[in-house]
Write a protein that binds this DNA or RNA. Structure first.
Lengths: 165, 165
DNA sequence: TGTAGACATTTGTTGGCGCAAGCATCCGCA
DNA sequence: TGCGGATGCTTGCGCCAACAAATGTCTACA
């Protein structure tokens, strides 16, 4: 079938991942845009919502989202402009600052989530049976652990400051 | 464990895909950069190498790579400047043009491929056994078919012009 | 033949992100 | 206490890609 010397089967796996990622973005983005968010905005808000005190230091947000620190600065700038997050000084380290999820941010998440989950069902959940999903997720986790060591959410908890106020 | 109302397990799958994709990019990019290419340059060259006559119309290249047509224009501009691809007029439709892989382009691919494949082995092949890889790929294919209908390489073949000269 | 609409591509504009530089702060050590 | 290096964040700059508008070409239909 193929006439190319560059058709190693390993390449198809990489290509598929890229294709699926791009396709999912294209599929998911309209829902986010309708709510005035980008995918990365959503990721940011979700990560905050899952963090203790619903807040995260800028650096931790960067490692969790995969953005550079400057990228996080600008995302939080945007979200702060819409009052979806707030910056909060860290009481124990005056260099650091927290991004905190606001009530408006939680509300925005609640607005978007149902339609986003429906999209996920269409593109993922209903396509695979339980065993397939389990294998799929475990494969992704193995790859992530190699490719992004230390990017787990748990890393942030270890440098949590004591709860203020 | 979690205190968030936004921790639906379906979200973790999407997050993992994004994380793995981002992590792979970060991991793979140095190899491409060392050869003066970006990941998308590489994808473009590879797609051309696998196409009949080693050429593809701009539009087909766009759907295969997931870029917009204007994006493809500029990628091909870059690659043409380095003589890795050439533009060729379509004999049967003067609106269309082909991007054709040149000898230099093939050579550049040969330069990059071994190190790229080694990266893939580190991040993928050796992490999963045969069954896991099979399930993983089939899951990705199912998702791709839903999320990017008509983006398969075969679609381009159907509108192939007859071979010129 | 002539015309309207679709299509392939390119160009102008805009926004997002990474990199490097800069500033403030923290830590270790004398 | 005081100093040097490390760390956390922000800002200046440049690249890249998407969107929209413009151009040239094709197709269908009268």
């Amino acid at each position: 079938m193929s006439v190319s010397p560059f058709d190693d089967p390993r390449l198809t796996a990489m290509g598929l991942i890229a294709e699926v990622h791009a396709g999912l973005s294209a599929r998911m983005n309209p829902v986010f845009q309708a709510a005035g968010l980008s995918w990365i905005d959503f990721e940011t808000l979700i990560r905050l919502s899952r963090s203790p005190e619903q807040r995260l230091r800028m650096t931790d947000l960067a490692t969790q989202t995969g953005l550079s620190t400057s990228g996080v600065t600008r995302v939080v700038d945007r979200l702060e402009r819409e009052s979806l997050v707030a910056r909060m000084a860290c009481p124990t380290d005056r260099r650091a600052s927290y991004a905190v999820l606001t009530d408006a941010g939680r509300e925005r998440l609640s607005d978007v989530l149902p339609r986003h989950l429906a999209d996920i069902d269409d593109c993922y959940t209903t396509l695979l049976d339980d065993d397939e999903r389990a294998t799929f997720l475990s494969a992704l986790r193995k790859m992530r652990d190699v490719v992004r060591p230390g990017a787990t959410a748990g890393a942030a908890a270890e440098r949590e400051c004591t709860t203020p106020a």
